[in-house]
Structures are given as structure tokens and as C-alpha cells.
Amino acid sequence: MIELDNLYTKLTRVKEEMIVNQKYLNHCLQAKANAKRVYESFTKSSDQYTKQQFKRFLTSLIGREEQYIEKIEQSRTKAYKHLNECTETLEQAYLEQERLENERNRLTTQLHALKQQLNETSGPYREEVLEAFSERKHLRETCEEIDEAFYIGQKILRYVYEAIDALDSAKSWSTVDMLGGGFLTDVVKYDHIDKAESIMQKVEVGLMRYQEELKDVSYSWDSGYEYLSNSHRLMDFMLDNIFTDVSNYNKIQDNLSSLENLLNQITTSQNRLSALRKQVEIEIEQSLDLYELDKNQS
């Protein structure tokens, strides 16, 4: 089945070239649009024309009208030339994409015909078709597991952002407290702290579920979040001096740093999940191309 592998390799290479060329084509489209906008700016509106006329009048007063007109014409000619170059480049990109599409279709047709032939004449290929079907089922289950883990991760990230917002508010009120706030300042500050701690409880539950789902992804996280004890709160309310205020501020700042670190760790795990998902999708697509007889019919 070397012929099958070689044909698939050619098809894969053409598909990759199509992706690259499509990006280049999009770049050419944007370049032409920019060039067209620059060229049309010379004769876009009567208002601009009036401004140019007024500028020409001013330049005529000092004897430089000819230089001004020459400069405008040079700029217009340059813009027109650039527009033509962009148009030609875009046309070439379209032609290349068309050529690649035709080559892809040709190879796809050959691949389908070869698969049908092997299925009729090769026992080992028929066995691989059955094995590939079972493998794709497993790969799709893996995708579902990845999606579930990714969903949990996104939920954790939302919670962490909410906790950071609550602690940011608590930090602001803690600053006010150090500058001479009183009982009401403490009440508002701890209201935000309580909100953050309530959210962190959800985060910790989510992290346990997240860990259960991360079977094929390396991960490392530690929130390091420190909950404020009741005794600490009581001392802050009872003593309410600069020392307790500074201590609270530092604990809030430390918790904010911990949450930022956790945010980066979860984001890294999410990126690894996304990469793994794409890799599994590639494996499924490759299996379909090589062993699904009804795929790629022309």
C-alpha cells in the first residue's frame, strides 16, 4: 500500500499549499483595497478638489503652482502604478489557488479510486479499514473528553476573573482604610473579600473536576489563595490600626498575585487542550482520507 501512502502525501502537501496561498491571497486583496483607496483619494470628492484648488491658488501667489501640480501628478501616477501591480499580483494568486484546487480534486479522485481498488483486491487493506473505523470511534470519544475539560477550564477562568475583580475592589477599599477609613470601610472591604472567597470555593471544585478530565495533558497549578480567618477579621475590626490595615492590604495583594499566576497556569492548560484537539482532528481526517471508502467521491 505504498502507492496509497504516496498519493495521500501528495494530497496533504497540496492542501497545505492551498492554506498558505489562501493567506497570501487575502493579503493581496487587502493590499489592492489599500492601493485603490490611495489612488481614489486624488479625485474622491468635490470638497477635496476645492481644497486642492485653494492650495493651488496659494502656491500660484508665490510662483510654485507648476511644482505643486507636478508633485500631485507624480503621486497620482505612482498610486496608479501600485494599484496595477497589486491587481496583477492578486490575479496571479487567484490563478495559483485555482491550479491548486484542480490538483487537489485530481488527487482526491485518484485516492478514492485507489481505495476502492484496494478494498476489492487487498485483504490486509480491508482489515485496516475495520481497524481504522474502531480507532476513529476512540478518537471521537477523546475529542468529547477534551471538549468537556476545555469547557470546565473556561468556566474556571471566568471564576478567576470574577475573583480578581472582587479582590481589586477590596484592595482599593483597603487602601482607603490605611488612609484613615473606619468601620464602614472595613464592612465594604470585607464584603468584596467575602465575594472573592465565595468564588474561590467554586474555583477549587472546578479544579478538581478539571484535573479528572486532564488525562493526556500535562498540567501544573496551585492557586496559593489564602482565606482570611475569622480571628484575623476580628482583629482588624477590633484593633483597626495601621498594622492590621497594612497586613490586610498585603494579604489581598498576595492573593491577587496568586490568582494571576493561576490564571496563567489554566490558560496554558487550555492552550494545550486546544493543540491536542487539533491533533486528534488531524488524525481523524487522515484516517477518513485513507480508509473511509465513501469519502472523497467525485
Score class of each variant (00 low, 15 high):
Lys71Gln: 01
Ser134Glu: 11
Lys71Ser: 03
Arg136Phe: 04
Leu83Ala: 06
Tyr68Leu: 11
Tyr8Asp: 14
Gln97Pro: 06
Lys51Glu: 11
Lys44Ile: 05
Gln22Arg: 10
Ala132Gly: 00
Lys44Arg: 14
Ser60Gly: 07
Gln30Phe: 12
Val38Asn: 12
Leu58Asn: 02
Phe42Tyr: 12
Lys115Asn: 02
Thr77Asp: 08
Asn84Phe: 06
Lys23Trp: 09
Gly63Asn: 06
Gln22Val: 08
Glu135Leu: 01
Ile69Glu: 11
Leu11Thr: 02
Gly63Phe: 03
His82Ala: 09
Glu88Trp: 10
Ser41Ile: 06
Lys115Arg: 12
Thr50Asp: 13
Arg136Ser: 03
Ser75Ala: 07
Leu118Met: 02
Lys51Tyr: 01
Leu7Tyr: 00
Glu17Trp: 11
Cys28Gln: 08
His27Val: 09
Leu95Met: 14
Thr121Asp: 09
Thr87Asn: 05
His82Pro: 07
Asn26Arg: 15
Leu111Thr: 03
Leu100Met: 09
Ala113Ile: 05
His27Glu: 15
Arg126Gly: 02
Ala79Leu: 05
Ile62Cys: 03
Cys86Glu: 02
Cys86Pro: 02
Lys71Phe: 05
Gln117Pro: 05
Tyr8Phe: 15
Leu7Asn: 01
Asn34Ile: 12
Glu73Gly: 03
Cys86Leu: 04
Leu90Asn: 03
Leu25Lys: 01
Asn34Phe: 00
Leu139Glu: 05
Gln48Ser: 09
Lys55Ala: 13
Ile72Thr: 13
Lys81Ile: 00
Tyr68Lys: 05
Val38Ser: 06
Val38Ala: 05
Arg13Leu: 15
Ala113Lys: 09
Arg64Trp: 09
Glu91Ala: 01
Lys115Ala: 01
Ser46Met: 15
Thr12Pro: 02
Thr9Asp: 14
Arg64Ala: 04
Arg76Trp: 10
Arg64Ser: 09
Lys44Phe: 06
Arg64Gly: 04
Arg37Gln: 12
Lys36Tyr: 14
Gln116Tyr: 04
Leu25Phe: 14
Gln48His: 13
Glu88Thr: 11
Lys10Arg: 13
Tyr49Thr: 08
Lys81Tyr: 10
Leu95Ile: 10
Gln67Ile: 05
Phe57Arg: 06
Leu111Cys: 00
Glu103Trp: 01
Ala79Met: 02
Ala31Leu: 10
Gln48Ala: 08
Arg37Met: 03
Thr43Ser: 12
Asn34Arg: 14
Lys36Gln: 15
Lys81Val: 10
Thr89Gly: 04
Gly123Phe: 13
Ser75Pro: 04
Glu66Lys: 11
Phe54His: 12
Lys51Met: 14
Lys51Asn: 14
Lys15Val: 11
Lys55Trp: 10
Asn26Ser: 12
Leu107Glu: 00
Ser46Leu: 13
Leu7Ile: 04
Tyr24Val: 13
Lys71Glu: 01
Leu29Gln: 14
Glu66Trp: 07
Gln110Arg: 10
Ser122Glu: 02
Ile62Met: 08
Asn26Gly: 15
His27Asn: 15
Lys36Met: 13
Val38Phe: 12
Tyr39Ile: 05
Ser45Gly: 03
Tyr49Ala: 15
Lys78His: 04
Lys137Ala: 03
Glu135Ser: 08
Thr89Trp: 02
Ser46Asn: 14
Lys23Val: 12
Cys28Met: 07
His112Lys: 00
Thr77Tyr: 08
Leu58Thr: 06
Lys81Ala: 12
His82Val: 06
His138Ser: 12
Ala132Lys: 02
Ala113Glu: 05
